[in-house]
Amino acid sequence: MTALQQADLLGRRAVRESLRTPEALAPTLFIPVFFLVVNFGQAGEIFPSDSTPFLYGQTYAAFQLPSSLLLAASFGSAALYLVEDIEGGYFDKLRAAPVSRGALVLGRLLAEGLKTAVLTVALIIIALPFGVTIASGPAGFVLLLVLTSLWGIVFTGFMQLIALKTRSAAATNSGGLVFFPLLFLTPNFVPRDLLTRPMEIAATLNPVTYVMEALRSLILQDLQWDVLGRGFGVVAAFGALMLFLNVRMVRRYD
């Protein structure tokens, strides 16, 4: 059996795990929707669609949607399930089986990617009444799903590292909070060129910025390959790094 087949089996198990704990899914949907509604409610009047060039004719909700998508993708609940497996001994059971160490890591990450795709679809549907459309069309919609899911995999990979290192649910949960400063050091409310100079520098150094700009371009404009290239480049680079570090951590796990 190949490592990919093993990852598929473990991924299916992780999907079952998520489906059997719907209560854990609720905050992943509710909090991003809350941010979308509140931010749109607070700033929608300041940025009217007909006189705000960076909205490309859409409402401010369309500008805000990428933040909510990234937030939904960054809960990393798979890492908390991993801590449960570690504490309960199931992780050792898997480690004592001839399962590829890559598959042990990848199974959960693939399931998290799938879960993120479903959440992305749900969030887009919820955003439709706020005047949001996907300007890049069906291809852009697919790219939006893929990019958000890949980001979910990257961030879950980061949280899995904390889980494997600390073996503690509390530490893993706290590690996830890192995403909030990263989210707010992006062109979250206005485009990068409208930020103050220090914020612009911070946003430029922040990799999340490029994923957010790529997602935003898919919602507001036609396919912008240069922006998309940067966004996908970030998830590819960080995804490879997270996979490498996770596999190394499992191999050295004592």
Partner: peptide, 22 residues
């Protein structure tokens, strides 16, 4: 092992089938 290493969200059958497939 000392702590029965089981996944509590799976059924007994699912757990053994998964182990066998792995």
């Amino acid at each position: 092992l000392q702590e029965a290493g089981l996944d509590h969200r799976q059924t007994g059958r699912e757990l053994i089938v998964l182990q066998a497939r792995l």
